[in-house]
Design a protein around this nucleic acid. Structure first.
Length: 585
DNA sequence: AGCGCCACTTAGTACCATCGTA
DNA sequence: TACGATGGTACTAAGTGGCGCT
């Protein structure tokens, strides 16, 4: 167990104290149990360990690789890796030079001496037969009967029952990712230099187990041992291993609906709310710092301005050649921004164009203050492509400065703060009375946040088609409405003088119904069009204080399940329970 | 200050179950 | 009943940031 030095204890306690102080609503029941002393995450932890993927099933004897036109029956190890490649043949990945080279290098490592001598050129390998077999298997699986699918579902349920839960401080909690990642070919995002490399099969001997010393330890699979069983209650993971492609750690952790994760999430939003009360001062300060004599301070001020105004990520340094070339704020290079004295009638425009996390492109044209603009010119001066824009700054320095302004403050808190405050403000502006329109308002507010945070998605493959479908429906609904209106008019005339108001009422209702239906569909069409390339889920899940949404739903009389699905409601159970009507972020 | 290690959050996509519709 | 669209979930990569060491 670690020994905690005083300075750290103080800062953490201070933060916790401030967080509790800032909290406006009382915590109820499950969320109310006392906190452990600093750094301790649990007192008791018991679980079944991770679930290992099934071992490799050899190919049927008649399915072979062909090399240079001749059939080759590979040994088990090489065959498994060949199957990984064959399975991906429909994917663009397998045509990429880097992917192919990495794959081939790693594949050859799995070959026997004999195979390695024979197979020296990937282009001479014909995976056709293996690929066809794979396609067939996929097809068979797709065509399984209901009963067969049911058998699968039940088997999965059994695995879930056994491995999907743990005992943490007397509570039964769901485990998030209890399955060990199966072997395969590494699929990085963007132009990843390691794409195609073999991701090794994880053995129990690679896995470290973390649990209570006085719990029933998980059993390793028969004939195996764990790498280690430790009892570290300053961390939350149940099992961990090192992944071979990047050498990074992988963890089995609790699910997002667990108490532990929920509390952490709540603390995150409380921290962001604390920023709300300090942000004016902080902005004033970095505006001032733009004039500093110190270059570092000015760079820090401009970076902070970007992080605050544009919700850029911090931008840690990355090891060159190990990952795709992506950047965040502090790692921006001179080629990522273009300065326009005037652009489209606006002065001092900064044009951003770079790849961010997951190699998602960030493109934006932003008018900035003269002072920021002048500084940027200065930072770019006498530098060339490839040079850091903020050459005197890194995320550690930035965060150190931020934490001196407010305990616990780091760059990412600005994203949480700006996302949540944007949602709250947008909801105030956009709200209307009809249910469909209310939901559109909510989605628009959500969308404003997603745009701010640059949360993108690939347009759904069926987008154009389903849009067209919706349009035809709208057209036919329009006709229906017109017809209903005509009928109403006619009925009205016929009913003149007579006392048949009943039929008129009926027709009126029909018109109203059609009109509502049409509106609903038109709203839906708008919503979907605006959403084409924007992912709402990421901000909903990670950036928007759920209490804003819960309070809005209560105030607007919108059922919560219209905006939060079951898992979101579970994840944000704390907010559902504690949020009052007058909650303000 | 800089680095490596570690733990944890944030991210997009592939896949799957379910639903409404032809 | 078969089908495609849709929403939800599983998966795992890719970030952030703290900490201890040199």
């Amino acid at each position: 167990m670690k020994i905690w030095i005083c300075a750290k204890v103080l800062s953490k306690c201070e933060l916790l104290f401030l967080v509790c102080e800032a909290q406006t609503c009382p915590l109820s029941s499950r969320w109310e149990e006392d906190k452990y002393e600093d750094g301790i995450k649990w007192k008791f932890l018991e679980h079944k360990g991770p679930y290992f993927p099934p071992k490799y099933q050899p190919l049927p004897h008649d399915v072979k690789l062909y090399y240079d036109g001749k059939p080759v029956k590979l040994g088990l190890a090489a065959e498994e890796v060949a199957l990984f490649f064959a399975q991906m043949l429909d994917h663009e990945y397998t045509t990429k030079e880097v992917f192919r080279n990495n794959f081939f290098r790693d594949w050859r490592k799995e070959m026997t001496e004999e195979e390695r001598v024979l197979i020296t050129d990937l282009n001479k390998c014909d995976f056709g037969e293996i690929h066809a077999m794979h396609r067939e298997r996929v097809e068979t699986r797709k065509n399984m009967s209901k009963d067969e699918k049911q058998v699968n579902t039940e088997a999965n349920q059994k695995i879930m029952d056994e491995y999907g839960y743990c005992l943490l401080d007397h509570h039964r909690e769901r485990v998030g990712n209890f399955k060990i990642e199966p072997p395969g070919l590494f699929r990085g995002r963007g132009e990843h230099p390691k794409q195609g490399m073999l991701k090794r099969r994880i053995q129990p001997e690679d896995v470290v187990i973390n649990c209570s010393w006085d719990s029933r330890f998980p059993e390793p699979p028969a004939g195996h041992r764990w790498k280690e069983v430790r009892h570290d209650n300053t961390v939350t993971w149940l099992a961990s291993w090192t992944e071979n492609v990047q050498g990074s750690f992988k963890y089995v952790m609790l699910s997002a609906i667990s108490k532990l994760k929920g509390e952490k999430d709540w603390e995150k939003y409380e921290l962001a709310r604390r920023l709300k009360s300090r942000v004016d001062d902080i902005r004033l300060q970095y505006q001032n710092d733009l004039k500093s004599k110190q270059m570092v301070t000015r760079q820090r001020a401009v970076a902070l301005y970007f992080i605050d105004k544009l919700a850029l990520r911090a931008g840690n340094e990355k090891e060159e050649g190990e990952t795709a070339d992506t950047v965040g704020c502090c790692s921006l290079r001179v080629e990522h921004i273009t300065l326009h004295d005037v652009l489209d009638g606006e002065k001092c425009v900064v044009e951003f164009d770079f790849l961010g996390k997951d190699s998602i492109r960030y493109y934006n044209k932003v008018p900035v203050s003269k002072r920021v603009f002048k500084n940027l010119k200065l930072f770019k001066e006498s530098k060339q492509e490839g040079d850091d824009l903020f050459d005197r700054l890194n995320t550690a320095m930035l965060n150190k400065h931020l934490s001196s302004l407010m305990p616990g403050l780091t760059a990412k808190v600005f994203r949480t703060y700006n996302a949540s405050i944007t949602l709250q403000e947008q909801l105030r502006e956009l709200t209307s009375d009809n249910m469909a329109e209310k939901l559109l308002s909510y989605n628009r507010a959500n969308r404003a946040v997603a745009v701010l945070c640059n949360h993108q998605r690939a347009p759904p493959k069926t987008f154009e088609k389903s849009m067209a479908n919706l349009q035809t429906k709208i057209e036919s609904c329009k006709e229906k409405l017109a017809l209903a209106k005509r009928e109403l008019k006619q009925t009205k005339e016929e009913a003149k003088g007579s006392s048949d108001s009943n039929t008129v009422e009926k027709k009126k209702k029909a018109v109203q119904r059609s009109a509502e239906q049409l509106l609903r569909m038109e709203v839906q069409a708008t919503d979907r069009e605006e959403n084409k390339q924007i992912a709402l889920s990421t901000s909903k899940l990670n950036y928007l204080d759920p209490r804003i949404t819960v309070a809005w739903c209560k105030n607007m009389e919108v059922p919560l399940d219209k905006v939060y699905n079951k898992s979101l409601r579970a994840k944000f159970a704390w907010a559902v329970e504690m949020t009052e009507l007058d909650f303000e972020f």
